[in-house]
Write a protein that binds this DNA or RNA. Sequence first.
DNA 1: AATCAACCCAACCGCCGGACC
DNA 2: GGGTCCGGCGGTTGGGTTGAT
Length: 259
Amino acid sequence: MNMVQEEIRKGPWTEQEDILLMNFVGLFGDRRWDFIAKVSGLNRTGKSCRLRWVNYLHPGLKRGKMTPQEERLVLELHAKWGNRWSRIARKLPGRTDNEIKNYWRTHMRKKAQERKRAMCAPSFSISSPSSTVTTVDSVQSKTGKASFYDTGGHDGDQVMGMAAVVQENETLGNSMDDIWKDIEFSEENNCYMIKPICEETTCNFSCAAIMASPPWDYPWDDWLWKMDNFEEESKLINNLPNDQIISSFNEYGMAYLTG
DNA sequence: AATCAACCCAACCGCCGGACC
DNA sequence: GGGTCCGGCGGTTGGGTTGAT
């Protein structure tokens, strides 16, 4: 056979690709990404499909700015777990690891710079029981790590992160104890702690379902029915280019299903 | 209005671990 | 036990957007 393998597509996804992917995920679930990549005819890798779904197309995703509660939680959990973004994301319903990672990089860099400037000012330092941390640079030189963001939430940045949290909570009227209690409670009960998350007007998904558990923790069969609740999902489904999907499905899907 | 820097975020890459043969 | 495949994760990059000058 002289089959020339079609080049794998890279780069930004088109609307058509999104719709196609959503519908094949609807058909086959969100696990078998290589399979979906093949049968959909998307010319994307399974990884790429998964990423697009998880970070952009998933109906449970929350858009818009992080709420102060979420910001605090990110700080808390990063101090506790380090760069375990997916783990942190599981505690923030509707937020992806990528989003949190990006958020951390941009916002924390800003904060670190501000803090550094503040700390460089005379007669100001933060004390911890074991050490006195003065600047970001001093932390880096101690740990030998390249970046403030790569420290994994230990050593100096943890102290500084916590200091920042304390500072912020003081202004917001929450104590650290309250937050830690919440976190521990949520872990013990395997539930999610951001209570006021749906105060956001941007919240466009079923809060009750999300609060109970993040949608990506559902077995596929469980959350398929939840898709009915999503306005955007319905819109997309209503606007399907049916012929395209059906032809793709006929070409690849049936072959797989029937063997 | 033009330019530049900072910011934001989608997407890719490489590595790792689990499942399967 | 070893090889392969695939999904998941964390790190990084590059392009678009926004804001300041």
